[in-house]
Nucleic acid binder design. Structure first.
Lengths: 110, 110
DNA sequence: TATAATTATCGTAATATTGCAATTAAACGA
DNA sequence: TCGTTTAATTGCAATATTACGATAATTATA
């Protein structure tokens, strides 16, 4: 049905999935990489840098902003985007918690 | 168009996104959590544990297997799934590389 | 061999995502 | 004020994802 049955999962599972999902597109990975490299930039720069149309970039920026990974400030006719450091740190610890599950005690079945 | 233009991105960006994407569904997060807890289990257990239909679980298992995060061994009429430790470690370092980009030198724009 | 148990696959329906052209909105500068 | 610049929004088309019923395939068991 294309609809995720989030009602049957825990909050943790849904939040973890939502975070992973927003990283699950190469354009958004590229945007975040560029913001780390450049510190801050405007939408138009990303259009040039990445090579997708302006509305497409704008849409990806919106998703990143909705999850809190970036923030934007209006600067005249432009909008300056940058990494939201506080939320990035929170995301990192959420991922760490998931990825660093105890692998040593895992027994492979085969 | 619903089709990701992976041609314009780097291999790194595409691989990073593919890994994140497979974690981007709560059912797959739940499956992985359960495998960590139980070490190994069969599809039917996951159907009971998670509460989605058997074909749906089977499909999610397939995606996890395609990315290499789990592996399955045929055991009679059942298939025993478990975490692929080697690939899990590889994924972890890929995520670390991305998530641990130098945050200290990032200047927020606003 | 026939039946049961288990998982994968197929087919399909519903929804989501991706991408862009066209347009709108907002703020600046001549 | 009027045009210019920049980004967001709208509307739409194409593709992808999610979910499940039905079925097939495989192996064990009676």
């Amino acid at each position: 049905m294309g609809i995720t049955r989030s009602d049957i999962f825990t909050d943790y599972q849904n939040e973890m999935a939502a975070l992973a999902k927003v990283l699950g597109h190469p354009a958004r990975v590229a945007i975040l990489q560029h913001l780390f490299k450049i510190n801050a930039c405007v939408c138009g720069d990303l259009v040039d840098e990445i090579g997708l149309a302006q509305p497409t970039i704008s849409q990806h920026l919106k998703e990143l902003k909705n999850l809190g990974l970036i923030k934007g400030t209006i600067d005249g006719t432009r909008v300056c985007y940058c990494i939201d450091k506080e939320n990035w740190t929170k995301m990192k610890s959420k991922f760490s918690q998931f990825l660093d599950q105890d692998l040593d005690s895992v027994k492979e079945c085969c």
